[in-house]
Design a protein around this nucleic acid. Structure first.
Lengths: 204, 204
DNA sequence: ACGAACCATTCCACTTGTGGCATCCTAATT
DNA sequence: AATTAGGATGCCACAAGTGGAATGGTTCGT
């Protein structure tokens, strides 16, 4: 998840100043990216301008410092769309923003492109469930410093259950979203061809 | 979440080679950190050794390349515990590994220390719910490139619901864990003093 | 006998992110 | 009158992560 892509996506929706982008990232965008620094936003904007992905116009604020309003160039739009609709590689942590960021910009995709992403994600996570759900979670070892084995086990046990539930909810959500997409419930621009089905069953 | 801390925690449980650490991060540790590179592990190990947080002994593999088994020094253990039990600052994304990593090493904490972390996290997320749950999620704007507003809205709506549910599940899990900790259900080493209660109610 | 997968380490150029600081102005609060 | 909060941009040194590739051995399946 590059900051660059988020910035491009937001700017495509609505030209903004660096300050506004930062505010967005701290409020609505807080689920797309953690703890973003001002300096990072401005530097990203600067390097993107050098690469001609964005351009700014000066927006004079009488009395106060001028604001620079950035908008995306054609080249920037191309770069953004290449990222958004290009090959999707799921992160190893399913909670990572890789998927969420793409879904946040679903409006720039076609139903087919969205479907491709969903399929990759669902397949990946179902494989993970099959591989890791019933693993051995801990061997015994000799801890070097004071260690409350009982506490570790209780917390570990609950964490595992929570993680498993979250993963199941994640997959169920995606399968449901996929279903609705295929049924044309998400948009009137429906799919041209309807591909095969994918099971929602991850229990065994 | 620094790789350093995860590595120290794992090594405190069980001295390992760089290769083994990488394997751990790719399997059991996959929920603590995404897509970790080999080079990153070895470099981390290298700099930690320079800072005397870890030390290695050579473990000859007849015929093949020697393996270096790393273990944590006293200083390394101090650094690890300072991080683990020091002030906890929640990330803006609740799905980020900051909390999970600490809980994964719960065995190195006292019940009081674990309680402090839980309290900070619960408070933070309840505040977030109060602040962001019923926000306006989208203004209308003029998109620069083709945009399926209908698809964006459907997906956005479902994402929001999913996010809200996940956040609620997260808080509920923590409140339950806290409850059990106070009731002494997690470890026989119980708390010395029992502090006030914290409500599990985030609906309004 | 071959390739694939696994064990094990290391280097390198590059890109990103962190955290803090400096500067200037306005508007509201105390 | 002074402080604080917010709007706005930018610079800097440094820390951390990315994404390979190179090297050289072993074991296992076909």
């Amino acid at each position: 998840m590059k900051l660059e892509h988020i910035l491009l996506g937001v700017l495509l929706e609505h030209p903004s100043t660096g300050y506004e982008l930062k505010k967005f990232l701290d409020s609505y965008g807080r689920f797309l990216r953690s703890n973003t620094q001002m300096s990072q936003v401005y530097r990203s904007l600067g390097t993107m301008e050098k690469q001609a992905l964005v351009a700014h116009s000066v927006d004079p604020r009488p009395g106060a410092q001028d604001a620079k309003t950035y908008r995306v160039t054609d080249e920037g739009a191309t770069v953004f769309l290449d990222w958004l609709t290009g090959p999707y590689h799921p992160a190893s942590r399913f909670q990572d923003p890789e998927l969420g960021a793409r879904l946040a910009f679903a409006g720039f995709m076609s139903a087919e492109q969205l479907l491709r992403i969903l399929d990759v994600e669902i397949q990946t996570r179902q494989d993970e469930i099959a591989r890791y759900r019933y693993r051995d979670r801990r061997e015994t070892w000799a801890p070097t410093i004071p260690f409350d084995a009982e506490l570790a086990e209780s917390v570990g046990e609950r964490m595992h259950t929570k993680g498993a539930n979250a993963m199941d909810a994640h997959v169920a959500f995606l399968v449901e979203l996929r279903r609705e997409l295929l049924d044309g419930k998400l948009s009137s621009r429906s799919l041209t061809a309807v591909p095969g089905d994918m099971s929602a069953d991850n229990t065994r």
